[in-house]
Design a protein around this nucleic acid. Sequence first.
DNA 1: AAATGAAACAACCGCCACAAG
DNA 2: TCTTGTGGCGGTTGTTTCATT
Length: 273
Amino acid sequence: MSARNCGADEPVQQSELRRGSWTVEEDTMLIHHITAHGEGNWNSLARSSGLKRTGKSCRLRWLNYLKPDIKRGNLTPQEKSTIFQLHSKWGNSRWSKIAQQLPGRTDNEIKNYWRTRMQNQARQLKRVQSDRFLESVRGFWVPTTTLDVKGDADYSSLVSNSSSQQQLKNRHHHPLSCSSPSSFVFPREADDSMGFLELKTVVDSPSANTTAGAYKYPEFYHSLEDLSFATTMSAAAAADDDCGLLQAARDDWMADDETTDTAWNTDELWQFS
DNA sequence: AAATGAAACAACCGCCACAAG
DNA sequence: TCTTGTGGCGGTTGTTTCATT
């Protein structure tokens, strides 16, 4: 807590200030004091009540836990639906506003619920990504990149089925198609300095026949896990036509400036292992 | 029964806006 | 106008509880 908020003239020394979980005694003291004197003016309340807590801490404890009209227990499906609707309308920065629409629920509670929900979704998406996206990388990105290295003349020798060939042709019309035959360049939101993540091909054995360069696969995939468009990628990977949809997903990601707003925090989403 | 992971909950921090002196 | 105190908010982190293996 900032010195400004704590107040240098507080009778309770900083070192004496209690932190962490509230005891039953502290709760009782706070309730009694607010019952007798009302809420508000939290710093003086903290002082006069004898609690070794900051006014801010007292306020939070009262508003989020002790206030009589606080509703306990799980959110109802109706409440969850309301949260979802209002969140899609107002976004992350309006928890208090959302809470106003849900009597008895606090912004903190709603915020926690949403965060848990997003974490859960991120895990599920990542599971999907691990399985299906992996296949897609094997079946699409690796062969096409190999072709970039090897040269367009060998299209049909590497990919025999017609759908794959179509995908390859599509890729070559994609704005993100690499200009250099030895690298892909993906946008990466988290990288402020560059804005791009370059995934270079790695030639396994430079001394061998290097006309057919190949990715060192695990390294390649590890990098992919950083990509913030993985949400849309995963959605695509869950569908049948992985490769085609992967391209569409990549397009969407590029076109979607709101990516960071629709998730809790896209960086955060992918920190879970 | 123990270990592990996920979900829920509680609390704190930093920042900001506003009002009063 | 500037400073200070206060309240409020969103973001983050730590802890507890519950479920699954």
